[in-house]
Amino acid sequence: MIRLTGFLVVIAVFIACLSCQSEEEIKRQRYITEGILIYKNNCANCHQPKGEGLAELYPPIAKSDYLADKNQIICLMRYGQQGKIVVNGKSYNRPMPPQPQLSDLEIAELATYIYNEWGNETTVTDVKAVTPILKKCAESK
């Protein structure tokens, strides 16, 4: 009989769990994991780690009515935003800087994380859907 201890037990359970998940769920979890890192490195400073925003300066993402237009959110992730916006009935007027260094895949991962964490979704925002949205945004700029 093989005895597994500590770390090996965790690895064995993790592998067993992966084998029970669909390919789509594995992809969703991978996108979310990468999205968390992207959020922490590019968004959390202003929108805060739990998405609650920063006082009167930066709007919340968590429980935000602004998430309703996903295409608009995907565009502003890449191209930023200027001017006044209203989130949950409150006005904000600080620019959001563009993030041109983010690849289409990174934006898809970020959107997957944000919408799964705070937008009541349980699906992947696939890069195949994000790329044409970003192309259309670029054409309208």
Rank of each mutant, 00 (worst) to 15 (best):
R28I: 11
L105N: 09
I26C: 05
L4A: 07
L76Y: 14
S19Q: 13
P60C: 06
A16N: 02
G6W: 11
G119P: 01
Y115S: 00
L54N: 00
G51I: 01
G119E: 08
Q29G: 08
V124M: 00
V130H: 12
V124I: 15
I74G: 06
K136D: 15
G89P: 08
K70F: 13
Y113I: 01
T123C: 08
K84P: 08
G89D: 01
N41V: 03
R28H: 03
G119V: 04
L105Q: 10
V9F: 04
I2N: 12
G119T: 00
R30C: 06
P59D: 06
K27V: 13
E23T: 13
V87M: 03
D69G: 08
K141Q: 14
K50Q: 10
I73R: 11
Y66I: 10
Y58A: 04
E25D: 13
E106L: 02
K136T: 15
I38Q: 09
M96Q: 07
Y115C: 05
N71A: 14
I73C: 02
V127G: 00
A111R: 00
E24R: 12
K90Y: 14
Y92G: 00
K141N: 07
G51Q: 05
N45Q: 05
S22L: 00
I85Q: 05
K40I: 10
Y115L: 07
Y58G: 06
Y39A: 04
G80L: 11
Q21I: 12
M1I: 13
N88K: 10
I11Y: 10
K141P: 01
L110Y: 02
P100S: 09
T131C: 07
S140L: 15
D126N: 09
F14T: 08
L110W: 00
C20M: 14
S91L: 13
Q21L: 15
G83C: 09
L4H: 06
E56Q: 00
K84A: 06
S22Q: 00
Q72C: 07
Q81C: 02
C20Y: 14
M77D: 04
P59Q: 06
S64A: 15
K63Q: 12
G80P: 05
E52W: 04
Y79V: 08
K90F: 14
T33Y: 15
I133P: 01
R3K: 09
Y66T: 05
N88W: 09
N116I: 00
L8F: 11
G51T: 03
S91D: 12
K63T: 09
